[in-house]
Design a protein around this nucleic acid. Structure first.
Lengths: 262, 262
DNA sequence: CCATAACGCGTATGACATACGCAGTACGCG
DNA sequence: CGCGTACTGCGTATGTCATACGCGTTATGG
C-alpha cells in the first residue's frame, strides 16, 4: 500500500490522504474522468455551512446538497467525516499572522500571538465544537505552532518549557472562546441575548444555593458581588477585559519562569 | 406548567427536571405503579458503560439494554440524552475534597484544589468527550466552584478576579487531561502504547516539516531537542512533571496578581 | 486502442434519538 | 370500597446520519 514517494510519511503514521494533499505531498492522479469536484470546494462548502448554521448542520448529505452533488461523491475526496472536520479546522484557522518586527520583546510577541489566536477562534466559534482528534498536523496549525515557538525564542526556556507554555496558552484561549460559544449558542437557540442568558444563569444559581446558603458562602458572595452581570456598566467589564486579565496573569507566570532561567 | 414550589427555579431558567431532582427540590410523585427504574440506576449504568467502553458506547439503547429495560423507558426519567450527559458528568466529578485546615496559605489551597480536579479528570477521561452545554449547574459542580472560590479567600482579589483565575485553572486542567485522553484513545483504538503514539506523531511531524525546514526552524529545533520523547528517561519527564510545570507557572501568575492587590 | 484507474452516484445497512400512543398499575379521594 | 387519574414500562414508527458496496461511465497512458 501507498507506493508514492512521500518521504515515508504515510508509512505508519496514519496521516490521512487528504492531509498529505494539504501539504502538497501528493497530487490527484490524472487518470479517470475530470473531477467535477475538489477537496477545496468541499471544504469551502462545509465551512460556509458551519459558519452560517453551526457545526450541527454539517452532515455529509447536507454538504453534498449544497454542492449539488450526491452524498457519496464526497467520499472520493475524504475518507471519513472526521477527516473533513480536520480540514475544516485547518481552513478556518488559516495562516498565522506575520511575526512582529525583530527587537520586539518576547512578552509583546507572545501577547500578539495569543490575541491573534483568540481572534480566529471568535471568528469561527463552530471550530470549538469539533471533537478533538489529536495533536495538530495540518500545515496551518503547524505554522501557528512555529510562530508560537518563535515568540518564545530568546527567553532561555527549554523546548520542553516552551511547549508547556504554548499549551497553557492554547487551553486558555480555548476555554475563553468556548464560554463565548456557549453564550452564542444559548442566544441562537432561543431568542435570548448573551447577557440575558448569563442573567438567567445567575438567577438560577442563586435560587439553587439560597436554600442552604451556609454551604455556599463563597458562591453567594460571588453572586451578590454582581461580578457576573457584566453588561450593566459597559465601561468596567467586557469580554475583552476578562480576556486581558487572564492573559496578563498567564504572562506574569511565564515571566516569573523566564526570570528564574536567567 | 410546573406548579410545585421550587423557589421559582423552573420558571424561566430552563433547569431540567432531572437536575431539580438532583438538588433534592422535587420528589417523584407517589401516584402510579412503583418505578422499577430510577434515575440513579440509569446514571450508574451509563457511567459504568462510559468508563468501560468510552462515551461513544453510551447510547440510549445500549444503556437500556444494560439495565434490562426498553430504550424508551429511560425517557420517563430523562428528557433528552443531553440531560443524561449532564447527570453523568455530575456523578463522575463527585463531591469536592474536604478543604485543607485553616491557616493553610492560599497557594497551597489552590494547588490542592487543582490537583484534586486533575485527579478526577484523569479517573474519568470520558467526561472530556461530553459536548459542553453551558456553565455548571449540578450540586457537585457548584460545590467544586465553592471550594475553588474558598481557596482564593483572603487573597484580596475581587470576585471578578477569582472567577477569572478559576476559569484559567479549569481550562488548564481540562486541556492537560484532553491531551491524556487523546493518547489514551490512540492506544485503545489500535494497540499502541501512549508513548509510541507520541513517537509516531513526532516522526510524522518531522517528515512533514523536514522538506522545508527553513520555514519551520523553531519546530525543527523542538523536534530535535527530544523534548517530546518523554518516556526515554523516566526520571526527568513525566506527565506529572508537565502538569506541575504548568501549575507552577499559573500560580506564579496569580501570585503576581495577588501581590499587586496588596 | 484498449485496459485501467478515477469518476459520480444509487442503493442498502445499521445506528441512533426520539415522538406517540397504548395498556397496565396503584394511590388517594370521594 | 371503588374508581379516576397519574404514572409506569414499552412497542412501533419516523427521520437522520455515516458509510459499505457495486455499477456504469470516462479519459488517459502504455
Amino acid at each position: 500500500m501507498a507506493e508514492a514517494d512521500d518521504g515515508g510519511v504515510t508509512g505508519d503514521s496514519g496521516l490521512p490522504e487528504s492531509l498529505a494533499l494539504a501539504w502538497g505531498l501528493r497530487e490527484r492522479p490524472a487518470k479517470g474522468p475530470k473531477p467535477g469536484l475538489s477537496l477545496d470546494r468541499i471544504v469551502s462548502a462545509a465551512v460556509d455551512l458551519a459558519a452560517a448554521e453551526g457545526l450541527g448542520a454539517v452532515s455529509m448529505g447536507r454538504v453534498a446538497r449544497e454542492l449539488g452533488v450526491s452524498t457519496m461523491s464526497l467520499y472520493r475526496y475524504v475518507a471519513a467525516k472526521d477527516e473533513l472536520y480536520v480540514l475544516m479546522q485547518e481552513r478556518a484557522i488559516g495562516r498565522p499572522p506575520e511575526p512582529p518586527p525583530p527587537g520586539t520583546p518576547w512578552r509583546e510577541r507572545v501577547a500578539r500571538w495569543t490575541r491573534a489566536q483568540r481572534e480566529v477562534a471568535h471568528r469561527n466559534l463552530w471550530t470549538l465544537r469539533i471533537p478533538i482528534q489529536g495533536p495538530p498536523l495540518g500545515p496551518n496549525n503547524v505554522a501557528w505552532m512555529e510562530q508560537g515557538l518563535a515568540a518564545l525564542e530568546g527567553t532561555g526556556l527549554t523546548e520542553d518549557e516552551k511547549l508547556g507554555v504554548l499549551s497553557l496558552i492554547g487551553g486558555f484561549v480555548r476555554s475563553e472562546a468556548v464560554l463565548m460559544a456557549d453564550l452564542d449558542a444559548a442566544m441562537s437557540a432561543r431568542g435570548i441575548a448573551p447577557d440575558e442568558s448569563m442573567r438567567r444563569y445567575v438567577r438560577t444559581l442563586r435560587a439553587l444555593t439560597a436554600p442552604d446558603a451556609d454551604n455556599f458562602p463563597a458562591v453567594t458572595r460571588l453572586l451578590d458581588s454582581g461580578a457576573m452581570e457584566q453588561s450593566e456598566d459597559p465601561e468596567t467589564r467586557t469580554p475583552d477585559a476578562d480576556f486581558d486579565f487572564g492573559l496578563t496573569t498567564l504572562l506574569d507566570g511565564v515571566e516569573a519562569l523566564v526570570e528564574r532561567r536567567e
